[in-house]
Each structure stands twice: as structure tokens, then as C-alpha cells.
């Protein structure tokens, strides 16, 4: 079980909003974590706690394919992103790099900013402690579950190449 606070965002949060391109020539994921989502919520990067959750609306991560977006979120300490839906490339990148993402339209609508959540990453069961309600996230393709359980795409490939992790 993962427990943390919900930071609620709206629909169509773009990768430009998650990590603006003007920071992309920097090379350290910690520098990206310091400015993650800053154009939308300047206090987010400094106040987000380790294990907190982003809860967002439709099409989260839309826009560019930059993997810096899920990496910045992961580096900032976010345990998982729960959204109504995800952009294709953000969803793909998140699995490839081991950021947990859950599609759950009901949670996206009903969770309030600041609610304490509990998440079972294996079953996808999300509990809103404040409101005493729970939600079931949509199931994930077994190929992707396997990808995450192997630690992401690069760890999986390394295992294939070298025979060990």
C-alpha cells in the first residue's frame, strides 16, 4: 500500500506544462523536478511530499514525447499518477521508465485536492481516506505489467542482452 496526498490537476495537462521546453537543455532530472508543473502550480515542486499522488483529468501528458515529463514527476517523489485518461506517449514513457500510472475516471472526478489516498499498486484499488470511498483503476495489459515488474524497458533489455539485471 502506498499512502500520500492528492494533488488535483485539470484536463489536458501538457508535457509543456509538466516540464517547459525552456528547461530541457539542462541535463539533471533533479533540476527538472524543481520546476515540475511550475507554470500551473508554482508551489507544487517545493511542497509535494514523497509518496504523494497526482490526480488529473483527461489526456494527461498531452503534447511532446519528452520522457523528461514522467521522469520529472517521478524524481519529484510522486508515487503514482491517477488520471481520467493519459496521452499515448506519456502513458508509454511512464511504463518504460517505471512511473506507476492508473487510469481511473471515477477517481479523477471525485478526489479533492489535498485528500489522503491509499493505493494498492498491484490491484489498482484506490481509497480516498477523507471521503471514505474507493475506486478501481482500469486493468493494465499483461505485457505492460511485466515491463513494470522487470523494472522498466531498459532493465528488461539489459537482462535480455547480458542475461542478468
Amino acid at each position: 500500500m502506498i499512502s500520500g496526498m492528492a494533488w488535483v490537476f485539470g484536463d489536458h495537462i501538457s508535457s509543456d506544462a509538466i516540464i517547459p521546453a525552456r528547461f530541457l537543455h539542462q541535463r539533471d532530472s533533479r533540476s527538472w523536478a524543481k520546476v515540475v508543473l511550475a507554470d500551473l502550480r508554482p508551489e507544487f515542486a517545493s511542497q509535494v511530499g514523497f509518496g504523494d499522488f497526482i490526480v488529473a483529468g483527461r489526456n494527461f501528458g498531452c503534447g511532446s514525447s519528452r520522457e523528461q515529463a514522467p521522469l520529472a514527476i517521478k524524481t519529484a517523489g510522486v508515487a503514482a499518477v491517477i488520471a481520467h485518461s493519459f496521452s499515448r506517449m506519456f502513458y508509454r514513457n511512464a511504463f518504460n521508465m517505471g512511473l506507476a500510472v492508473f487510469t481511473c475516471p471515477e477517481a479523477a472526478v471525485r478526489v479533492h485536492d489535498g485528500d489522503r489516498l491509499r493505493l494498492d499498486p498491484y490491484s489498482g484499488l484506490i481509497e480516498d481516506v477523507e471521503q471514505q470511498i474507493s475506486f478501481q483503476a482500469q486493468p493494465v495489459d499483461p505485457y505492460l505489467t511485466d515491463l513494470v515488474s522487470q523494472g522498466g524497458l531498459l532493465k528488461k533489455i539489459r537482462k535480455q542482452i547480458t542475461g542478468h539485471g
Binding site: 514525447s65 520522457e67 506517449m89 508509454r92 514513457n93 518504460n96 495489459d141 522498466g152 524497458l153 533489455i157
Partner: peptide, 20 residues
């Protein structure tokens, strides 16, 4: 289609990718 940097790293080595 567009992919991320991890996909790219894997593709550089293997010449393959996963697609739904």
C-alpha cells in the same frame, strides 16, 4: 510514431520496439 528516450535507447541496441 513518437517514442521516448528509453524506447530510443532500446531501439538503438535491438532495432526493435513494442507497439500496441
Amino acid at each position: 510514431t513518437g517514442v521516448g528516450a528509453s524506447d530510443l535507447a532500446a531501439a538503438l541496441v535491438t532495432g526493435r520496439g513494442w507497439f500496441q
